[in-house]
């Protein structure tokens, strides 16, 4: 029953997104909504390792950037079509996720987080020093001139992101309701107790880190076409790591809907602020909201709703 309702919701969102492209002419709508969709994917992906498994990751930028640069390289050298870019971007970040998964064998808590932050800097430095990826100068990407089904390439990118976002959220829902997800929850609650109760801790952690990384890479793959000019420091930015961590925390880390709500709320606020106030205020907004939620609603929006509901029924 619930499954059917969610399936209908997924189909509605995708077809709604596709229909929008037929009606909305304003290109700025697609340009800004793309970022909101990108953050829905990143926040949901972050939550698989951070929220479900309990390993706080500051390396979102690295996974995203690796996906984006893999795609950028393949566009400039081989002119591969978008679906292939998504597969390749996802794969390269999955490999990075796999490596980070093995890192959890030795590092826990804040040490793990610091290592992911360091990894992000290493990846950025590697790209700066790789001429084939444009180095510090950056990389120009030209969008294909011809677009089938859509009136321009931005609309195609928007539709692609809608589909990826729905797929990502559906995957998170599936993980949450599977034995894989319950094993992850046991690891998050108490790793030693989980292992002594038969949970294959390392295997599940590696799988979780790989899935999370792959999804972030997939989110990065269409980015070169979106931005047209990529350079390392803005592609692999700490802002992105902080955002994709703050969104699940604000929305609620326990459930798939939390990161989605957090991403929509925070990212939309940022997009509006960029236009109305100044783009410099973006991170300030994140900081204020994060502090506010940590104090007033430590379990995020989802936790807030739940406790309100409970109070009403009691």
């Amino acid at each position: 029953m619930k499954k059917a309702a969610l399936l209908i919701l997924a189909v509605t969102v995708i077809s709604g997104g596709l229909l929008l492209t037929a009606y909305i002419e304003n290109q700025y709508f697609y340009f800004s909504t793309y970022i909101v969709l990108q953050y829905i994917i990143l926040a949901t992906a972050w939550n698989i390792l951070g929220g479900y498994t309990g390993y706080v990751n500051f390396g979102t930028g690295a996974y995203f950037g690796l996906g984006a640069y893999t795609a950028g390289y393949l566009i400039t050298n081989f002119n591969l079509p978008l679906p292939w870019l998504i597969v390749a971007g996802g794969t390269s970040s999955a490999v990075l996720g796999l490596a980070i998964g093995y890192l959890t064998l030795r590092l826990k808590g804040v040490y793990f987080s610091i290592a992911t932050l360091a990894m992000s800097i290493v990846i950025a430095t590697l790209i700066i020093n790789t001429p084939a990826l444009g180095g510090a100068k950056g990389m120009y990407i030209l969008r294909p001139k011809e677009v089938s089904f859509f009136s321009n390439y931005m609309e195609l990118l928007f539709a692609t992101m809608v589909i990826i976002a729905v797929f990502t959220v559906a995957l998170a829902w599936f993980i949450e309701n599977s034995w894989f997800g319950r094993g992850l929850a046991a690891i998050r609650d108490d790793e030693v107790a989980a292992a002594c109760n038969g949970v294959p801790v390392l295997r599940l952690k590696v799988l979780s880190a790989t899935t999370s990384g792959a999804l972030m890479g997939i989110a990065g793959a269409p980015y070169p076409y979106y931005i047209s000019y990529m350079e390392p420091l803005s592609t692999i930015s700490l802002d992105m790591a902080v955002n994709s961590l703050a969104m699940p925390l604000i929305g609620g880390t326990g459930s798939w809907i939390g990161p989605v709500l957090g991403a929509i709320l925070l990212s939309t606020t940022q997009q509006v602020a960029t236009v109305t106030i100044s783009s410099e205020y973006n991170l300030l907004i994140v900081g204020i909201l994060l502090v506010g939620f940590v104090i007033l609603a430590p379990n995020g929006l989802v936790g807030l709703f739940q406790s309100l509901l409970k109070r009403r029924t009691d």
Partner: peptide, 17 residues
């Protein structure tokens, strides 16, 4: 204990795994 789960769910982890 696994804090985020109910008592029953706590038992389901070793039963399943």
């Amino acid at each position: 204990p696994f804090r985020s789960m109910t008592v029953l769910e706590n038992l389901c982890i070793p039963l399943r795994f």
